[in-house]
């Protein structure tokens, strides 16, 4: 197998990990965003939290594995991106910590003040995490100024501009929609009826932001279209994307939330593929000098490491998929509160 092919395979595998993370932890973050709005009393709040209770930390492992794989297979990109996004990533870590500990701590006391405090942190952590993921994607799409060695030359304020903030809001809207569909499947009664409105509402907000981001990126982020000219088959992805978006609303109207959920998973996958297609073959586009671009070829590890990684994935992934499905099967159906719940 040629070295270039190995690099491309790993680029695809990283996409798989990122899609896995975005779909699975995506609904967790969406649920966290919706938490204060859709749940009106303590029982409902507990139902909302327990809908992701057994699943969220397994979902977060996809991010851990994505980070580990990026470090292992594309260390140049890992080092450059993580040190460039220094403060945003520190905040992201805080957001993920808030989300985790508020789930763990909230149920440990019954006092309303205690519970409200963790409710707020749960909401804030989930929303901030979604926002920062989006901002990072938006900033990376535009490229960043880096030195020849790949070290970021700008400041944090260069990363936060109109476009990256809009992509951040877009991500929050997308995950809110995704999360509301997930919650709709997991709940019943009044709570579920309330979610119906949220599914529709978040769909409209998402579609508006989708149009804005699409126009903005095609018109002002020049790199975003180049591959579509060279490889027309890529147009399949935005086509599926649009069809899936339309199908979400159709399925919501027909009250078939599972179809809506599958469609919103497809939408998330399509977005990540479009993002990667627009970067390819770069991992970190250098805005100041194209010669400094960190690509999937010059930023990759050695042939042996890429091969060992493939072997690890070949052994590990079937195991991961089998127990992930086992866990989801065990916790299928509507969420209920039992003695072990949060």
């Amino acid at each position: 197998m040629s070295y270039e092919l190995l690099c491309i395979i790993w680029f695809i595998l990283l996409n798989v990990l990122l899609i896995g993370y975005a779909i699975l932890d995506g609904f967790d973050l969406g649920v966290g965003f919706l938490h204060p709005f859709v749940a009106k009393d303590d029982t409902e709040r507990r139902l909302v939290m327990n809908s992701i209770g057994p699943l969220w930390d397994g979902n977060e492992v996809w991010l851990v594995t994505f980070g580990g794989a990026l470090f292992a297979m594309f260390p140049e990109a890992y080092a450059s991106i993580f040190s460039a996004f220094y403060l945003p990533f520190v905040l992201l870590l805080f957001a993920l910590i808030f989300r985790a500990v508020s789930l763990e701590f909230r149920s440990k006391r019954t006092s309303p003040a205690w519970r409200s405090f963790w409710d707020i942190l749960f909401f804030a952590g989930s929303t901030l995490a979604a926002l920062l993921f989006g901002v990072a994607v938006g900033a990376l799409m535009q490229g960043v100024a880096i030195s020849e060695r790949g070290d970021f030359l700008g400041s944090m304020l260069d990363l936060i501009n109109g476009f990256s903030v809009v992509v951040g809001l877009f991500t929050v809207a997308l995950l809110a929609m995704h999360g509301s569909i997930y919650l709709y499947m997991k709940t019943e009664g009044v709570l579920q009826q309330r979610l119906y409105g949220w599914m529709k509402g978040s769909w409209y907000v998402y579609v508006i932001l989708f149009v804005v981001v699409t126009i903005w990126s095609t018109m002002f982020v020049p790199a975003s279209l180049q591959h579509f000219r060279n490889t027309p088959v890529l147009w399949v992805v935005p086509l599926i994307n649009v069809l899936a978006i339309a199908n979400i609303m159709r399925a919501i109207r027909q009250e078939r939330p599972f179809y809506a959920f599958i469609s919103s998973c497809l939408v998330i996958a399509a977005h990540i593929i479009l993002f990667s297609a627009n970067l390819f073959p770069n991992l970190v586009p250098a805005a100041n000098n194209a010669a400094y671009n960190i690509t999937i070829f010059n930023g990759a590890s050695s042939r042996l490491t890429l091969t060992i990684g493939l072997i690890i994935v070949a052994i590990g992934m079937p195991l991961v998929l089998s127990y992930t499905s086992l866990i989801y099967w065990t916790f299928r159906g509507k969420v209920t509160l039992g003695p072990d719940s949060y």
Partner: peptide, 22 residues
Amino acid sequence: GDVFGSALAAEGIFAFFLESGF
């Protein structure tokens, strides 16, 4: 990264998924 990262990735795939799932 070339040597250290693969150990970290293996940890995610072999250990953390197992632990958090079960």
